[in-house]
Design a protein around this nucleic acid. Structure first.
Lengths: 285, 285
DNA sequence: GCACATTATAGATGGCATCTATGATAGACC
DNA sequence: GGTCTATCATAGATGCCATCTATAATGTGC
């Protein structure tokens, strides 16, 4: 069964020239894209590319598919755009990164003009927001900026990822903490965090395999649990709040740039986005 | 993200006039189709149908989507057909129902002419074979015939579903068995069986909740286990074999028609299908 | 033949399409 | 006007498969 995503992978390989770049442009890993192309070939019973480590070339069967695949994808995009455009009609559809403080969103919403319906918020992880932007399902997003040339961006601030502990925690007085010191610390898993894999790798590489007393996708819940002393966690600096202390973790030098993304540079000047940007302040150092 | 299957559901509703028939024509359950249409509407941010319990009508947004959806599906089908047709090239691609005796397939293959590559066999469950036929990924199938008007059919024989027990089993001498007598019998689960749900319902409805010492997707393995006395099972009459006794189960009057399906009536006359049909004999009563 | 870039394989995981079972609703019928 | 019947929606469980990370294989260029 040929499915849309398979054709997207196929076209991405053609447009990007190799599997790895194609994977990046589809926001999936390289093995995923490889498997997808293989599945498409199996579906059709025909090889579509001749691969070498240097270059990827279309076979005859592949060449025959290109035009059709482009037509299909164009129709899909058109359908999505039509519905999206019809829907927009003065309304700002805004994506909000899940690992972003609720306070920002709450303050923004609280300050909105009374006449409702002007803004539509969509919370999601980084990749989901990028996908939605690409499909035209949202107009802009408050998320991580990575210099993707497909979108207009406005960086608001940069922050490091830090260790979050209860203010009552014995180690909270320390200025710098190392993974090895945290062997016996229960750790709360913030499932939506874009750096979850990296974090887990950091600890396991140092022989630290903590117990996980909680796994949540809500930062607010995670913060409450950390403050209550259930465990510690790693989070962006802006995660901090009452009863929670943020401390640097040794050899863990990850940062993120938070900003606004939009498919159209003009949109970045939207008054509501301006207001949102004003409300999003860098956390006190 | 609009996906192909969503558009198929959408078009099926239009073509069939209501959700239930549309679901049947897509080989999915009615709730699945309902959820699919709902998801498509959410994706587009627009209602596509106005529903009542009597009739389903397109909204304006729905009407705008129809032509585009048809073009997309037509292109997909065309792509599949092209590849399939190119592939066929004299080769017969034949689907074989999983719950069909291995013997039939084995005899058929053994009797094939030496020049290989003339036949390609695909084993699968009923729905998978129907899907493949629909997509043109196989040319014909030896499977259950239900009078689907989309396919040309040739019924070969009909058989009941019976209880299978080891020949050494104390109950094997009985001519008719009731579910209630089987309370303490371990039961082997033939996972691929098209009647699995019905069978399980039959027993649970009578308060019989057997222990399952084995769950398998291979009838050959299931037969070996039954013969070895590990447990009993319910299967089509043709499941029987050495060391296994088939007995009717009281109040369990299910039958199936086995036959050949093909998208094209002319194909049913294919000499290899004739030979297959000859080899597939009804089991001795 | 080594180094590097690229694709394929392996194994695990999670999300979601799918299922069955049941509920809600409303026209039809006597 | 109740009861029946056809229809779509909801609930909860299940299994498949797209996806991930980690690692191996492969081939090209110097």
């Amino acid at each position: 069964m040929i499915d849309r995503y398979l054709l997207r992978y196929f076209l991405a390989v053609i447009d990007q020239g190799n599997f790895s770049r194609a994977a990046a442009s589809c926001n999936v890993s390289q093995p995923t894209l490889s498997a997808g192309v293989a599945k498409l070939e199996a579906s059709l019973g025909r090889q579509l590319f001749t691969r070498s480590n240097r270059r990827v070339a279309l076979t005859e069967a592949g060449a025959r598919l290109v035009a059709r695949a482009r037509r299909i994808e164009a129709e899909f995009l058109q359908a999505e755009r039509e519905a999206g455009a019809a829907r927009a009609a003065g309304r700002l559809r805004l994506g909000i990164l899940s690992s972003t403080p609720t306070r920002w969103t709450a303050d923004f919403v609280a300050a909105l003009p009374r006449d409702a319906g002007e803004v539509e918020l969509v919370e999601g992880r980084e990749r989901e927001l990028i996908d939605r932007l690409t499909r035209g399902r949202i107009d802009a997003a408050l998320t991580i900026v990575r210099g993707n040339p497909r979108f207009a961006a406005r960086v608001l601030f940069e922050e490091p990822y830090l260790l979050a502990l209860s203010a009552a925690h014995p180690l909270s007085a320390r200025e710098l903490l190392a993974a090895e010191e945290l062997v016996d610390e229960p750790m709360i898993v913030r499932r939506q965090c874009e750096l979850l894999g990296e974090t887990s790798r950091h600890f396991t590489a140092r022989g630290v395999r903590p117990f996980f007393p909680a796994r949540t996708t809500s930062d607010d819940r995670a913060r409450a649990l950390v403050a209550a002393g259930l465990g510690i966690t790693v989070a962006p600096a802006s995660f901090g709040g009452e009863g929670v202390v943020m401390r640097p973790l040794a050899e863990f030098d990850h940062r993120r740039e938070i900003g606004l993304l939009a498919s159209d540079a003009a949109l970045l000047a939207h008054p509501l986005l301006e207001r949102l940007a004003d409300g999003v302040a860098a956390p006190a150092p």
